[in-house]
Amino acid sequence: MAWIDACATDEIDEEDLIRFDHDGKTFAIYHAPDGAFYCTDGLCTHEKVHLEDGLVMEYEIECPKHNATFDYRTGEALRAPACVNLNTYSVKIEAGRVMIEV
């Protein structure tokens, strides 16, 4: 496991997400309404659609294709058609940069 510099904190609007690709994997990085940052796998566990175009509502991310919903803090699948949780990754902020542990 290593800490990777993913983006600047101001690159993600509050209550939104961006896509981050690294080493052949794709991630979603979220800026929560309380100012915290989170990271999950980038692809929905239902049909591998990328979550980057999804809707962040408070602490949930909704898949843009079939409206599956996850709690991005824990990765828990909250609404069908997703039944499998998302993987989550540790995040820390250093000098205005979002670092993820992958």
């Binding site: 239902h46 049909e47 294709k65 079939h66 069908a80 058609p81």
Partner: peptide, 10 residues
């Protein structure tokens, strides 16, 4: 039907 409609969109 929730699942069939998801397939309709895929």
């Amino acid at each position: 039907w929730r699942w069939s409609h998801a397939r309709h969109h895929t």
